[in-house]
Design a protein around this nucleic acid. Structure first.
Lengths: 237, 237
DNA sequence: CCCCTGCTGACAGATTATGTCAGCATCCGC
DNA sequence: GCGGATGCTGACATAATCTGTCAGCAGGGG
């Protein structure tokens, strides 16, 4: 039963305080100490830690030791040359304009995050950027969400897709995706095709279904990429 | 009465999302739009704004207009998501591949700076990015250093260039550059041409000489850009 | 004048947060 | 191995908070 509670600040505020408390320390801290510092019970502190972890904070807890938060939760201040900011803004603008909607949104989101840690002068440069991406023919819209494909690439997971080849009927295939290529008029998934036992490219606008399969594929995607590059006669990037 | 509620994320999470939503925009946004974006009622959004203000966010609301958040909120943004890093990497790769050498180098440099603040996992994502820019026809190389042009744009300085039009002999012109457009097969400087007393585009590969003149041109480049947009029938970005 | 928009108060019901208690697992020093 | 410190989880009951709806006021722009 929640007997003694001092309303105090809101939970959101307390969570931020907890982050600051972690950042202030280098040595491990016990939950009891932090709980006392924030004026809550140890149980609540465990819950708060769980929330921060769910948000992506790398908080490590060891029994008998305490908690340590590794850096990389909040974005630290960043400094760039003006031309570097313009280069980032232009690249993000290109992605926002020519990639699939999910990646486009991510580009805008990333730029917004960077904007949040820039000094005032550079932020103006970013907001008033004069570098524009020219209009042009865009790739046909996709049926499936390419974020699913990218997720599979990152996690090295097999995908089951339904693909319509140039002149044929749709076929179901199982692939090991390891890359995605962005051309001016098309996007392509690079993969090892289990069905064909060879490397294959799949235009994203011809994929009508796409579902991740459980388990990883048995090779590293870096190795697949390297082998594919060799076959393509493309050098290292 | 709270009738239809989708549990969704916690309030703390939503508040951070709201900050990001503000940072993503430069133009005023209405509470209704933000509420829809966050999946919450307008009333709740007003409450959220009140909370952020209490935390020190400079959010300005004007009746009939909407909200604008001024920069300088002490709460830094959260770390990038994996897909955001991929979006940045892809954009930078495009710039590195398709822009002029100076801007390409800046893009790589900017990415290196970002890489420096990433936690290990994200740095791997960045370094082993699976998103590639497809090969394609690149713009013809330039004779002049476009960094000079960009510098002039940033500083709103007049430029003296020698330009070769489609079928004519090279001419010297004085221009007020306010933007640069990156097309698939060409790069273009957008400027007000003093000689022609009108807006003009200049393909960068046809500029054979380029030198900054002292002093600023008498208009703000943002205003020039806006007017040019109006003439082009291009909406706001 | 009308519409859009910010802003506030009230209310009731749903959701969440919290402390207490109890127990298990893990790491360290002894 | 033992004991203490510590992380971690579940259950439970109560208090606090959150939320949407409704209603209304005020300011800005056309």
């Amino acid at each position: 039963m929640g007997r003694k509670r001092t309303p105090g600040r809101s939970r959101a505020e307390r969570l931020l305080e907890l982050v600051q408390a972690f950042r202030r320390r280098r040595r491990p801290v016990s939950a009891a100490v932090l709980a006392a510092e924030l004026g809550v019970s140890a149980r609540s502190l465990y819950r708060d830690v769980a929330v921060l972890r769910a948000q992506g904070a790398a908080i490590e807890g060891e029994a008998g030791i305490g908690y340590v938060m590794k850096p990389g939760f909040l974005l630290p201040p960043l400094m760039f040359a003006a031309e570097e900011i313009e280069a980032l803004a232009l690249g993000a603008a290109w992605v926002a304009e020519r990639a699939d909607p999910g990646l486009a949104a991510s580009a805008r989101e990333a730029l917004a995050r960077i904007s949040g840690v820039l000094p005032a002068g550079l932020r103006e440069t970013l907001e008033a950027t004069a570098l524009l991406v020219g209009p042009g023919e865009k790739p046909a819209p996709d049926t499936v969400d390419l974020a699913v494909v990218r997720q599979a690439i990152r996690a090295e997971r097999r995908l089951s897709i339904v693909y319509r080849t140039g002149g044929g009927a749709p076929e179901r295939r199982t692939i090991w995706p390891f890359g995605m290529g962005f051309f001016e008029r098309a996007r392509v998934v690079m993969a090892w095709c289990e069905t064909r036992r060879d490397f294959r490219h799949f235009r994203t606008d011809r994929i009508s279904e796409c579902a991740g399969l459980p388990g990883r594929y048995p090779r590293r995607r870096g190795a697949l990429m390297k082998e594919w590059r060799g076959r393509q006669g493309i050098g290292e990037v």
